[in-house]
Design a protein around this nucleic acid. Structure first.
Length: 202
DNA sequence: GGTTCGATCCTCT
DNA sequence: GAGGATCGAACCT
């Protein structure tokens, strides 16, 4: 189980339409080096945030200090603090200057589960990584990773997994967003159908 | 320098 | 189902 390579996905993967990247990220792996151990989770739920016109996106207000990474090159982590309590991890997509990213909403724990349990205060395995804030706590991801290059295979990266066939993917509106009618209804959330680690949603 | 608020989670009812 | 936690950043004055 520890013999797997966990090869980083190349930057070119992220330099494509964000909704497509969000869908195709399902089945790949988020890998974290933490205190000499590997914490690995299979990506089972994502959401796309696309461009200035997406009123649910942090980038809809224009470029600011917080969202600057979203305007940068693809393949970097955009991490922010929400409600002063939890962190959320995004992967930046598309060309520099165009603000877009994919929020990682849920993982299926694969490796380093003991450490994840400890970081999550001994909660049930089902509750370790089934939400964007939860998975950041389980993998010790915080603001220090904002702007981190996810293509290097160091500290935090996305590793090559197996693609999920379309019939196994559920698609629907995003969770917890504010904004206009389009922001609330556009089906830019993707999840692996029936996977027990998908977040509760609304 | 002050105020407001959030792409969430947890606890209590 | 409701309410609170708790902080950085945005947006005032």
């Amino acid at each position: 189980m520890n013999t797997r390579a966990w090869t980083p996905i190349p930057r070119s993967f992220y330099d494509r339409p964000t909704v497509q990247v969000a869908q195709e990220l399902l089945g790949h792996y988020l890998v974290r080096e933490y205190e000499g151990q590997l914490l690995v989770g299979r990506i089972v739920e994502t959401e796309a945030y696309v461009g200035l016109d997406d009123k649910a996106s942090h980038a809809s207000v224009g470029r600011t200090a917080r969202n600057a990474v979203m305007f940068g090159p693809p393949g970097y982590a955009y991490v922010y603090l929400i409600y002063g309590v939890h962190h959320c991890l995004n992967v930046v997509t598309e060309r520099p200057g165009y603000p877009a990213a994919v929020l990682i909403r849920a993982l299926e724990p694969v490796e380093g589960v003991e450490v994840m349990r400890r970081l999550r205060g001994g909660r049930a395995d089902r509750e370790l990584t089934n939400g964007p804030g939860k998975l950041c706590q389980a993998l010790a991801i915080d603001l220090r990773f904002n702007g981190h290059d996810l293509c290097l295979g160091r500290e935090l990266w996305v590793a090559q997994g197996e693609s999920v066939p379309p019939e196994e993917i559920v698609r629907g509106p995003r969770v917890g967003v504010r904004g206009d009618e389009r922001a609330l209804t556009v089906p830019w959330r993707f999840a692996i159908r029936g996977n027990p680690y998908v977040s509760r949603g609304r």
